[in-house]
Amino acid sequence: MTVTLPRQRVKARLSDAVSGLLYLSPSIALFGIFLVYPLLRTIYLSFFRTDTQGTPLEFVGLGHYASLFMSATFWQSVQATVGFVALTVPLTILVALGLALLANEKLRGIGIFRTAFSATMGMSVAASSVIWMFMYNPSIGIFNRFLEAIGASGVQWLLDPQYALLSVSLATVWMNIGFTFLILLGGLQNIDRALYESADIAGTGYWTQLRAITIPMLSPTLFFVGIISLINAFQTFGQIDLLTKGGPMNSTNVIVYAIYKDAFINYNVGGASAQAVLLFVTVLLLTWLQFKLVERKVHYQ
């Protein structure tokens, strides 16, 4: 194989390129049609006034962005989104980490608990939301029954602007624990047992080992889970649509729900596109920022 003639080599390289692209072409074509094109189209439409079918009618420049920044509704939706992210992401990771640490113990029957903790990954947002809606029901739901049993007065979990975002967030934490738990448990199991064995010999206690071995070795997984959870939180839609429809008083009108309402209910396609662009830029910036911030602190094996 060492004496390949130059022309043959060029030909071989060309055919490599052709077949390489051939294998990639279905994915590239679909990414092109359903990801790149609509992304560019969204950016384009955000500069236009459109008809209800999304046909651009008149160039308005940054008009949609300007009116968004002037609109109280938009700022409410920013507030709801930020609140939702802050209420769900840290708590989900913390609880899932606790569960993963428990489920990583070498005990008889631990498999049952692992299955139980990952169960919500198999639950759809729609089904879970319906169950939580029942639990939040003011008259027959379990939460108010409990409050009444201890002598407190019931709460309008989903109708009171003070509680609605909190209630939706709590339900979301439950829904997301399964997936987060599964990844963190996998991360824990990948940590070299020998590290713990030498720590045991040195007589180090559980909490010291957790701080000195487990958390640093788990940091790449935590980092990954952090990014995924953050992006997912920004994309939340289903539980809002089923539980609160963005209400009461826009307190749960998170960004994706706002986009959906503007585009498909109010037919303000230009305004919805401008919000979609802002969502895209935010997610991009956050991902990048998190990379920059955590990169230095993450311990790679």
Partner: peptide, 17 residues
């Protein structure tokens, strides 16, 4: 990089397509 595009940001043109 496609993993960083929130799918919801593209849903309007996708619906039209």
């Amino acid at each position: 990089a496609t993993m960083m595009v929130p799918w919801e940001a593209t849903m309007v043109p996708n619906f039209l397509t």
